[in-house]
Nucleic acid binder design. Structure first.
Lengths: 298, 298
DNA sequence: CCAGCGATGCGAACACTGTGCTCATCTTTT
DNA sequence: AAAAGATGAGCACAGTGTTCGCATCGCTGG
């Protein structure tokens, strides 16, 4: 139910207070919040608990932070600030692929070190205008541009790896959170879940075999492997595109090495391409599902 | 603070009641919950509201559902049930790429139709043993296997596109939720956010230019394009791998066409990433940043 | 030096939340 | 018909985010 129009609330849109460093600063609050989140998880973050943790009353925090949502925006940006981002150094040794690989692994490590981020990423606006997030985006954008992506496409490329990393790590983080809550080891938990798993995959032979095979390996190592595997595939895909672009900017048509690649390099129009007959797929087609008439409010 | 070991709670691990269809059934509850979520969003889902919506008392629901978390597990699986999954039909017309593309677009449409899923995906366990989720996984697994992936690798391949799709759509869904809450159109919201955006990207010329360029296009079309672009890149990457596999099952090493592709085809060890010496990155390492010593209030 | 004043901290209060406990009612089985 | 068990609902409890009004602190101007 759409309310009457009002500007979207965001920390970064709201002007800061005049006073820069009062006795209890915004920075202290978000740092304490991160600490609390890291030690006790997302459910433990309440304004009251955070207040007492700071030796302050619960409601005092509202002098420095408008909302709990706003606090979380700040907290997320602070955590992203822990990343050191590879600078695009044109011409010198480490290629874009190495740098992006390193960054992706660092981002994963970051999320796994603060698993509560997973619970929060999907709930908060994507308007990530925080200073650390913008810095990250800008640098990676530059990295892709020096790698050879035209400026308007580099943005799309950045989104691809960000999507992959957050998609994978969100699932991992959720699992790790569940694990921490149960107090069991990863092996123990999986063993405890095994009967239910076996029951659930009874009618799905392929999945059953997959789970069975996975059972024989160390879970953490398996997650590491899966992440690296998917990252390599994604980077392969970007490399293919880069190769296409390198061949004198031919946007579509004859593909030399890989499978059919469809999307054109510019916005707005879908690409025409080889003989796979999937041109409509580059653009959202109206889904033929009963899902549609249900929820579309706007 | 690990609690003493206790089995991980999951709906699918708990035995169902003997009684199959009582007057107020579990199915009714989750259907009503989906309805409530679709119309009023995630914040509107409370047990009391859901109860009154069903003409029942609030606490009556606990006879059929153990938790709110459990309810959400059920709700998510029900929504995933709306997907019709392409069956792997070996030899016949539509190739794996077309089928996966269609499925990915369907999954995106599904999440966008139920944007609250984004708020919930990261918070809930990955132990998706729900019947619809297992069915989906099994079919897609089969699809990749018939495409040419060896069984132990197909699982990793499935994860790649799932990660990409959920990663992208989670961000989109969060944005759409924010939008719906504000009651503005996408254009209006972006315009209202523009001053803050310009301020935030002031010191980041590349990002600034990117935002500026994006401003000239229809936001929804841009999101569509970005999704299709990333999906094509991801599929390109998988196609490359498939090609490698096709060349007589060389698991790693000599790459013919694309950039360095490294990960070995088997589980158990993380891939060696060329000469970067980044093996420590596969495991969460403590970050070395200024963020750390800040919040030490004690 | 002191008055003033805005910025800050905080207790009480409000409208909610998820959920355990208890008891009445209803359905099914013996 | 009687016994047994499943189901619905009210009450209560411990929390939650957030607002409001009041007390207090530190700094500024006279």
């Amino acid at each position: 139910m759409p309310v009457d129009p009002q500007p979207i609330p965001s920390v970064w849109a709201r002007p800061r207070d005049r006073r820069e460093q009062p006795s209890l600063s915004r920075e202290q609050i978000v740092s304490a919040a991160v600490e609390l989140l890291d030690t006790d998880g997302i459910d433990a973050l309440s304004m009251r608990r955070l207040g007492t943790r700071l030796g302050a009353g619960a409601t005092s925090l509202y002098r420095h932070v408008a909302n709990k949502d706003e606090l979380i925006e700040l907290v997320v940006d602070q955590v992203y600030g822990e990343l050191d981002i590879p600078v695009p150094d044109p011409g010198t040794a480490p290629g874009w692929r190495v740098l992006i690989t390193r960054l992706a692994h660092d981002m994963r490590a970051l999320v796994l070190a603060h698993p509560w981020i997973a619970s929060v990423l999907g709930g908060l606006g994507v308007a990530y205008l925080g200073p650390n997030m913008t810095r990250l985006s800008d640098r990676v954008l530059g990295l892709f541009e020096t790698a050879g992506f035209p400026p308007d496409e580099a943005d799309s490329a950045v989104r691809v790896i960000f999507a992959y990393v957050t998609g994978t790590t969100a699932g991992e983080a959720a699992w790790l959170t569940l694990l921490a809550r149960s107090g069991q080891s990863e092996q123990e938990s999986l063993s405890g879940l095994w009967p239910a798993t076996e029951e659930a995959v009874r009618d799905h032979p392929r999945l059953h075999r997959s789970y069975e095979a996975a059972r024989k390996h160390d879970p953490a190592a398996r997650r590491d492997h899966n992440f690296a595997y998917g990252l390599d595939r994604t980077l392969d895909g970007l490399a293919v595109r880069l190769e296409q672009l390198g061949r004198a900017g031919i946007p579509s048509g004859a593909n030399g090495t890989s499978g059919a690649s469809s999307t054109a390099g510019t916005h707005g129009a879908t690409g025409t391409h080889g003989a796979t007959g999937s041109e409509r797929l580059s653009v959202p087609r109206p889904m033929s599902h009963r899902t549609w008439e249900k929820g579309r409010t706007g």
